[in-house]
Design a protein around this nucleic acid. Structure first.
Length: 465
RNA sequence: CGGGCUGUGGUGUAAUGGCAGCACGAGUCCUUUGGGAGGAUUUAGUCCGAGUUCGAGUCUCGGCAGCCCGACCA
């Protein structure tokens, strides 16, 4: 039996990840094994997002896993931020290496060292490179999908002639991510800017989109950084502009990771298990034959043919378990649409179906059965639900007492004013464990900082993963 | 890196210092199959090392590993 979400959300999460066959613990501490059912979700994310990345004008490439120490050290703030999390290779071929190699925690440095060769003129700009890769960050405490020492991600890196272009690129990448989360993952998110304390090491500023999980904690879904000329100055990435003047490029980098899978699980899952959005799940439809006699078999193949023609991803579960066992199993695994096909259906040319988010039995004639519509509607329902959940769990705090009360009683996002001082930010975090998730875009009312009373913007607080 | 806890079949658990047991899983066979089927049968375990003891899963010491809390974590 699955742990209830309300009893122990962490335990529910671990249970569901393991029991649904998404992932497994590995013999290597802090690392995970992504099992086929989970990896299929990643593949679907990759497939869809890769198209969007290319629409932004980026091309895929692949850079080395190892980063020589001298590259890594070039951008001071970057090293300072990442050093504690880097794994170093010190030996190779049985010998101690002359120069240590960092296992990439991110690829800015290894990429930008060659960007300086690729970029000479304004004609070489903008340069937009994306890579799908694994990276390693030595984390103290790990959680399946949410924070592992090795994880899979996508990192986009661009170089531009002007600051304005870099600003626009950082925004475009964030918008692309957020649209993706809405369209494919059915997750509503709040976009905004990170505070200086939370920005990427080496960036001018970091943009983020934050989503609310079912336990009321926030999850950073992905980030987009405007790197200014910080790296281009350290790495000497210069170009001659139209007037023959030498300039440093303006850069951005942006990424999302397998953490997205954790977000899907925690944003949609319920006490029965996973609820996977149709667009990214391995099997959009699971057919469960109630018996295996000839009539049922031939009716099932008829349905199979229809689904195949419609290019729907489906599975016929022919395992030996009882139908009841399979119903539960596929609810746990979060298959969006389940078809129950037995002698009754075969005889009457009807289909019994159950949508994962509604769990009601429906009966419809084969002629009227419209799986695309059902899946599409479910996909949309999940997003609406996600948006409503976020709105219902977003509260405003006028005072620090109110802030603490909301945090304790409800959790969720809390809108409150902040003066902009990192000291207040730190104090609030130390005292309440809530952090500023982002400074939301758009009109921003000015009000009194909940900590010190000075005037400041309205920002979004939450306890976060 | 500090504080606490725990290591028993594949998994989850039980056993005053005294025959290592149960459930799930897995294998085989039979009967079943419309919400986690039943029976028969088989399978497999005390983290590693030392000590105390007639006797150690249990006590002591060391090692290793894991979990929780803290610190840390774009």
């Amino acid at each position: 039996m699955l742990t209830k979400q309300s009893e122990d959300f962490s335990k529910w999460y671990n249970d569901v990840v393991l029991k649904a066959g998404m992932a497994d613990y590995s013999p290597v501490k802090g690392c995970m094994i992504i099992k086929p059912y989970g990896y299929a979700v990643w593949e679907n994310i990759q497939k869809a997002m890769d198209i969007k990345i290319k629409e932004l004008g980026a091309e895929n490439a692949y850079f080395p896993l190892f980063v020589p120490e001298r590259f890594f050290k070039k951008e001071a703030e970057h090293v300072g931020g990442f050093n504690p999390q880097v794994a170093w290779v010190t030996h190779g071929g049985g010998k101690k290496l002359e120069e240590k190699l960092a296992v990439r925690p991110t690829s800015e440095t290894i990429m930008y060292d060659v960007f300086k060769n690729w970029i000479q003129s304004y004609r070489d700009l903008p340069l937009k490179i994306n890579q799908w890769a694994n990276i390693v960050r030595w984390e103290m405490r790990t959680r399946l999908f949410l924070r592992t020492m090795e994880f899979l991600w996508q990192e986009g890196h661009t170089a531009h002639a002007t600051e304005k272009e870099a600003d626009e690129m950082a925004q475009a990448a964030l918008k692309m991510y957020r649209d993706f989360a809405e369209e494919y993952l059915a997750i509503y998110s709040i976009p905004g800017k990170k505070t200086d304390a939370e920005k990427f090491a080496g960036a001018n500023y970091t943009l983020t989109f934050e989503a609310l999980m079912k336990d009321g904690k926030a999850l950073q879904m992905g980030t987009s950084h405007q790197l200014g000329q910080n790296f281009s100055k350290s790495f000497g990435i210069e170009f001659l502009d139209e007037k023959g003047k030498k300039n440093n490029v303006w850069q951005t980098s942006w990424g999302i990771s397998t953490r997205m899978i954790g977000a899907i699980i925690m944003a949609h899952g319920d006490d029965k298990g996973l609820v996977l959005p149709p667009k990214i799940t391995q099997y959009q439809i699971v057919i469960i034959p109630i018996s295996f006699d000839a009539k049922v078999k031939s009716f099932v193949s008829k349905i199979e043919k229809i689904l195949k023609d419609k290019k729907i991803r489906f599975l016929v579960d022919n395992k030996e378990q009882s139908p009841g066992w399979k119903f539960n199993e596929w609810e746990l695994k979060g298959a969006p649409l389940r078809l129950e096909i037995g002698p009754k259906e075969a005889k009457e040319n009807r289909i019994t179906y159950v949508l994962r988010d509604e769990l009601k039995k429906n009966s419809i004639s084969l002629k009227q059965f419209n799986p695309e519509k059902l899946l599409d509607e479910m996909q949309k329902r999940l997003f609406v639900k996600s948006k409503k959940f976020t709105e219902d769990n977003t509260n405003e705090a006028k005072s620090y007492d109110e802030f603490k009360k909301i945090l304790k009683e409800k959790g969720g996002f809390i809108k409150a004013h902040w003066c902009g001082d990192a000291k207040c930010e730190k104090k609030i975090q130390d005292e309440t464990k809530a952090t500023i998730r982002c400074i939301p875009f758009g009109k921003n009312k000015i009000g009194k900082c909940i900590k010190c009373g000075k005037e400041g913007k309205e920002v979004l607080f939450a306890k976060a993963y």
